[in-house]
């Protein structure tokens, strides 16, 4: 049971990174990125492949981050004129393209067989339980670092410009802001974080296949950010852990209600997820921890 909890917390941390990534691009600058799973996959494959080729793990993860960011810049170029629904459709397509490449370019990705034997750090030295605990600590530290960075950014002048672009892109140019530059930087950073999450996922599971990167992941992350509070990093963080706990907890439905078939349990889980979101949004339309705008400094405290 304890190892299951550790597993859940680790997965929660990986989802939290994805939620922070989405919150930056969607909550921050207002770009609907339905291709999150794609950047997640790019990071996972990149890190797994270079690690198998012998690149040390920290470097492999950094590479995953950079390749994710590069994919983000590529996606921005492809979508720079698109907003709202159109951007959402194109990014959704991007994620599917990544999945199809992973499925069909067997020389690189081994297709639907997936990549197994991905190096896991210190697994041999620590044993399975020790490794799981170590990995939980690693993921948690990274989540904390990314969260603190995101919070800093949210409250910074950069974050202020992002919010302005989110609210009215055209008006932001009349405030003298280079909207394209800000969007590109944000997309790159966001995709880099998703790539890092992918790398962490791959080295944790030691096996990845195109099936792991279904669009459903993106939907879960949207759910997490919506429930947690769009536009506030701590909301995304809380939302992600809640979604993972909720998803994992409902697994036990079958054990409690033994009359249910496994297929029915799976369907009921999806229904419950939807219901839970409806409840949260009914009670807290802005999410559990809604966006806050920092007040002006008081004149007497300013230098």
């Amino acid at each position: 049971m304890l190892s299951y909890l550790i597993f859940t917390l680790t997965l929660g941390g990986i989802y939290a990174l994805l939620a922070l990534s989405l919150n930056l691009i969607w909550g921050g600058v207002g770009m609907v990125n339905l291709g999150l799973a794609g950047f997640f996959a790019v990071g996972a494959y990149a890190s797994a492949l270079v690690a198998i080729a012998g690149v040390p793990l920290p470097l492999a993860m950094l590479l995953a981050c950079l390749i994710g960011a590069a994919a983000g810049i590529l996606a921005t170029f492809a979508t720079i004129r698109l907003r709202g629904d159109y951007l959402a459709i194109v990014t959704l397509g991007f994620a599917e393209v990544v999945r199809m490449v992973a499925l069909n370019e067997r020389w690189l990705t081994r297709g639907s067989d997936g990549i197994s034997g991905i190096p896991a750090p210190f697994r041999a030295e620590l044993g399975v339980d020790g490794f799981n605990l170590f990995y939980l600590a690693l993921v948690s530290v990274i989540v904390l670092a990314v969260f603190l960075t995101m919070r800093r950014l949210d409250l910074s002048p950069f974050g202020r410009v992002l919010k302005a672009i989110r609210e009215d892109q055209e008006l932001a140019t009349f405030a003298g802001k280079s909207v394209t530059r800000f969007k590109m930087q944000t997309f790159a950073l966001s995709a880099g974080i998703a790539g890092l999450a992918g790398a962490l996922y791959g080295h944790f599971q030691t096996y990845i296949s195109p099936d792991h990167f279904q669009p459903l992941i993106t939907i879960y992350i949207f759910l997490a950010v919506t429930a947690g509070g769009v536009g506030r990093p701590v909301g995304a963080l809380v939302g992600a852990y809640l979604v993972v706990f909720f998803l994992e907890a409902t697994r036990f439905l079958g054990e409690i209600f033994t009359v249910l078939e496994p297929g029915q349990v799976a369907a009921i889980r999806e229904i419950l997820v939807g219901l839970a979101l409806l409840c949260v949004l009914h009670l807290r339309p802005q999410g559990i921890l809604p966006e806050r705008i920092a007040p002006a400094p008081k004149p007497e405290t300013s230098p």
Partner: peptide, 23 residues
């Protein structure tokens, strides 16, 4: 205006060539 931003933030946004505004 930018609907969710405060008056203060509107004013801050219009400062030009802000060296702290880069990523």
């Amino acid at each position: 205006g930018f609907p969710k931003l405060t008056v203060f933030q509107h004013f801050m946004l219009y400062g030009q060539n802000h060296p702290g505004e880069g990523l």
